[in-house]
Design a protein around this nucleic acid. Sequence first.
DNA 1: ATTAAAATTGTATTCATTACAACTTTGGAC
DNA 2: GTCCAAAGTTGTAATGAATACAATTTTAAT
Lengths: 120, 120
Amino acid sequence: MQRLLIMKYLLTHKTHPTADDIYNELSKRMPTLSKTTVYNTLKLLAESKACLALTLDEKNIHYDGDTTLHGHFLCKECMTIIDIPINEISLNREESSDYTVDSMEISFYGRCSACQKKRM
Amino acid sequence: MQRLLIMKYLLTHKTHPTADDIYNELSKRMPTLSKTTVYNTLKLLAESKACLALTLDEKNIHYDGDTTLHGHFLCKECMTIIDIPINEISLNREESSDYTVDSMEISFYGRCSACQKKRM
DNA sequence: ATTAAAATTGTATTCATTACAACTTTGGAC
DNA sequence: GTCCAAAGTTGTAATGAATACAATTTTAAT
Ligand SMILES: [Mn+2]
Ligand SMILES: [Mn+2]
Ligand SMILES: [Zn+2]
Ligand SMILES: [Zn+2]
C-alpha cells in the first residue's frame, strides 16, 4: 500500500523529489509511514525501472516518475531541477566495446533565470 | 604544493579517482598529506573548472582532469568508469528559458564487457 | 626580520543512506 | 474460517563520504 502511494506520488509530481521530500509529504496523511519504507521503495522502483534515480545533485538522490528520454538542469543556487528536452544524442559506439547500456542520465548545471535576476 | 600534486595526479591518471583514491595514492609518497587537503583542493579545482566533479556514482564524487566534452559509462557491477566519446547532443533550448548552462554531465549505466563475461 | 595572507593539517561533526531485526499484513492452501 | 509462509512495513542503530572548524605551518611581500 505504501509502495503504491509512493509510486503515485512520483507520477503526479514533476518536482524530482528526494526520499525525504516524499516522506515529509506523505507522512502528513499517513502518520505511521516509515522513512525506511520510503527509501527502500524508491530503491526498488528505480531498480525495476519504474522510475529514475537522478544523481546530478551530489547531496541527495532525486527521483523522477517520468522515464522518457529527457535531461535535467540543476540550478546551483536554488537547487531547483527542471526538465530539459533532448532531441538527439549521438556517440561513437566502438564495435569492440560490448558493454550494455541500460540507462542514462544527462545533466546540465548553472543558474536558473529566477536566480540570475536576483543577482542584479 | 599539495594542490599541484593533486592537479598533476588528475592530469596523469584517466581513472576518475575519488578524493579517497587520490589521498591513498599520494600519501604513500607524502605521508603528511591530509585527507582534508585533498577534499578541499578537489572542490576548489572543480569550482574553478580546472577539473570535473562527476556525480554519476551516488556513493562518491569522482574527479576527472579531462575537461573536454565526453560522457562516462559506469559499470554497476565493478563500478569502473570509462570514457564515452560524444559526437553531438541536440536539445530544444526554448527561447524564454534564459538559464545559463556552465557545465554538463552525460552518464551511461550498465555492465562492462568484463563483468558480462563473468556472468556466464 | 616582520607579518599578514594563503595553504595545510587533525579532529569533530553532519546527515543522507543503509543494515538489521522485529513486527504486521497479505493471500493462498486446506 | 484457520494456518502459515512470504511480502511488506517499521524503528533504531550504524555507516561513511563530505564538511566545519580551529590550530598550525608555509609563503611571499615589505
Ligand atoms: Mn525529469
Ligand atoms: Mn572522463
Ligand atoms: Zn535558481
Ligand atoms: Zn564491470
